[in-house]
Design a binder for these strands. Structure first.
Length: 700
DNA sequence: GAGCACTGC
């Protein structure tokens, strides 16, 4: 601890902090910023007038850093040093240093916008530019003006980003603290590889034959590529075994990895062995593997982005940024000098790579964030003029406003409604919050709570796919409920109700191949949501059991109606001649129900005329994921409302945004007309042909 | 009959 670089800069940092309200700290990996900044401030008396709060983008980081600081100070975790993450608040009245996720700090500022219990807020890892950190940056800018006399903000960032953050906070000082990484030699390829899979393979084998001891970390874009490379490596390494003096262990590493495999990655390495860890960008920041000396960087990452004009997400393989490349290389220098093989020429790095990754705020739907900011009800904040470090596009903000208006969270003048206020208190996306509110009016709150909780964790419920489990499933595993013909939301409800009736038995989950951790998470979320809804609940919150068939059907009916209100901005209409759908409310998109959906055609081979969908995502093609059948009678009033949207009024009637987007404004009613009216002859023929083509393609 | 990178309240 004593030789951490940051401690040599204590005087410099403290001088800057004493003379300024905001200070940017550029601290490379290993500088000790996460554990030491808070302790320095503590030593210098900043915890006398309030708490020093340190935000982290990830829960594990908040917990582990808090634990280490409590050890270094020799105090019990939860006393002077504590942490707060979702479902877990380990702080007390004695807590002076508090580590928390950025999301938790945002929640706190909802009930206490001035954050007056804090004397200092440190936004750690701000260069990662998580959505929550970006919102906090904007809020901090406002807050330092109001609390200049008794409040300090420290922001830690990366070399390439520090000046920008400083400019954002009126040229505040920047203190640079070196890291404690070993040097990493960068080796560029002479040419772009034809296949980065093959190139990774060749480089890995080359390292194995020629280089000394040390593990190899290989960055790939997704699970498919990881699986392919792992099996190729296994084949080739085996045939090389004679000539090599080390054994090889080849390990995949990605988000949906089973815990047993994670033990093999993070556990002790057998002697005279080289591990090849084939990972997604999870190994960039979230997980650190000890013993890595060589890194192979393809230069690509799979990224999720949102298109506000279509309401569609897509998963694209894109080039990484310079900051990301630097971060990946750094993974080779943690234990001793290392090497990073970049599978691209240095000219590509220099000329094509962006300096920093496009921040999440410019790649996501902003409905939730805009609702949150509106609910803060700060008189001096206008949402469309909100001071972001990087502003989202006007289209994105308008899209958020339209979404919020359609689900009654804001009124036609863009002002937050009573419903919207309550929605913002729920840790859910606005559509689900609205569904809960509506369900509360129709006596199915308990069921809606279950669905909302299940949807919060849906991706972690199903087991990670592999040929092995596919086989097992066919043989031994039980079939899940089928949604009674109404679709995936109802199925999720039924699954949870079954689990409830099985007394939340772990083995029950295993019988149905459901991820135990995911299901436990759902239970926690459901409890949290119930607590928040308690004060306004008009009916029971507990899981309903032993209902008759007829009662269940009535519940499903009410629940589907509530979903239709909540997902008013995510409706789709089946096309006349086949089972393709067209999205409503946005620029219409021709889409298919995702094959994983439980929704199946009826006796006449038709899917429901109208559905709500949880997500519109383009992977190989545009898909609706997680759908629920709704009635046309519920849809019609929503479409009327869509047609009457006046984005000018919603934006508060202020000229700034409208000026830039004249075309877009006129686009709104036009778009809806395409949906409502019959297209002219020529267009309709082309459209029909296209739909038939897509349908055929869909059948194949 | 296709597939989902990673976080967080």
């Amino acid at each position: 601890m004593a030789d951490l670089p940051i401690l040599q800069f204590e005087e410099t940092i403290m001088k800057a902090v004493e003379e300024n309200t905001v200070v940017v700290i550029i601290g490379e990996t290993g500088s000790g910023k996460s554990t030491q900044l808070s302790q320095i401030l503590h030593r210098r008396g900043y915890t006398k007038s309030g708490i020093v709060g340190v935000t982290q983008p990830r829960r594990v980081a908040a917990v582990s850093v808090a634990r280490r600081v409590s050890q270094e100070l020799g105090v019990r975790l939860g006393d002077e040093v504590g942490y707060a993450i979702r479902f877990e608040d380990r702080t007390s009245e004695r807590t002076r240093i508090k580590y928390l996720t950025d999301g938790v700090l945002l929640r706190e500022s909802l009930s206490n916008p001035e954050l007056d219990q804090y004397s200092v807020v440190i936004l750690d890892e701000a260069h990662e530019r998580s959505l929550n950190t970006d919102i906090l940056l904007g809020l901090m800018k406002r807050l330092v003006k109001r609390r200049a006399s008794n409040f300090k903000v420290l922001i830690t960032s990366a070399t390439l980003d520090g000046e920008k953050v400083s400019q954002f906070f009126s040229e505040c000082p920047v203190v640079r603290v070196p890291g404690k990484l070993f040097p990493v030699e960068i080796v560029y390829s002479h040419e772009r590889p034809i296949s980065y899979l093959e190139s990774s393979l060749a480089t890995a084998l080359d390292i194995h034959m020629k280089e000394g001891e040390g593990d190899v970390l290989i960055f790939m874009t997704g699970q498919d590529d990881i699986d392919k490379l792992v099996s190729k490596l296994e084949d080739r390494v085996r045939s090389l075994e004679e000539g090599s003096c080390m054994d090889a262990i080849i390990l995949p590493l990605h988000g949906s990895l089973q815990p047993e495999m994670q033990v093999r990655v993070f556990g002790p390495r057998p002697p005279n062995c080289r591990r090849f860890i084939v990972a997604t960008n999870i190994a960039e920041t979230s997980l650190t593997v000890d013993g890595v000396v060589y890194v192979i960087d393809s230069g690509y990452v799979k990224q999720r982005q949102y298109n506000p004009s279509t309401g569609m997400y897509s998963l694209d393989v894109v080039q990484i940024s310079k900051v990301q490349a630097h971060q990946r290389a750094g993974r080779a220098g943690r234990t001793r000098p290392g090497k990073c093989y970049r599978l691209y020429p240095s000219a590509v790095y220099e000329d094509e790579f962006l300096d920093v990754t496009i921040p999440e705020i410019q790649r996501s739907s902003l409905a939730g964030s805009v609702l949150y900011l509106k609910s803060l009800d700060l008189p001096d904040i206008d949402i469309l003029k909100f001071d972001f470090l990087d502003s989202p596009s006007p289209e994105s903000l308008q899209d958020a406003l339209k979404q919020l208006y359609l689900i009654d969270a804001i009124d036609e003048n863009g002002l937050i409604t009573r419903i919207g206020k309550t929605m913002a208190e729920l840790p859910l996306e606005p559509s689900l919050s609205r569904t809960l509110m509506e369900a509360n009016e129709h006596g199915c709150l308990s069921q809606a709570l279950t669905v909302a909780a299940m949807l919060s964790a849906e991706t972690t419920l199903l087991p990670s796919r592999s040929k092995n489990t596919e086989k097992k499933r066919k043989h031994d595993y039980l079939d899940l409920p089928d949604g009674s013909g109404w679709g995936d939301h109802i199925q999720l409800l039924q699954i949870y109700e079954c689990w409830h009736q099985a007394n939340y038995d772990i083995d029950w989950c295993k019988d149905y191949q459901l991820q135990v951790r995911g299901m436990k998470f759902v239970k926690d979320v459901r409890r949290q949501l119930s607590q928040i809804m308690q004060k306004i609940a008009k009916g029971p919150l507990d899981v309903q059991t032993s209902r008759r068939w007829k009662e269940s059907q009535q519940d499903y009916h009410n629940l589907r109606r509530a979903l239709c209100v909540g997902y008013a901005n995510q409706l789709a209409e089946r096309m006349v001649y086949h089972n393709g759908y067209r999205t409503l409310g946005f620029k219409p998109q021709v889409v298919q129900v995702h094959p994983s959906s439980v929704l199946k055609p009826d006796d006449e081979g038709k899917l429901p005329d109208y559905v709500v969908y949880q997500e519109l995502i383009a992977t190989s093609r545009p898909y609706l994921r997680t759908v629920c059948a709704v009635n046309i009678a519920w849809v019609t009033p929503i479409l009327d409302k869509v047609n009457k949207i006046n984005i000018n009024k919603l934006s508060g009637g202020i000229g700034r945004i409208e000026e830039h987007t004249e075309e877009n404004m006129s686009d709104v009613p036009k778009t809806e007309n395409v949906v409502a009216a019959i297209p002219d002859d020529h267009e309709s023929k082309i459209q029909a042909a296209r739909e038939r083509f897509l349908a055929r393609k869909g059948k194949k």
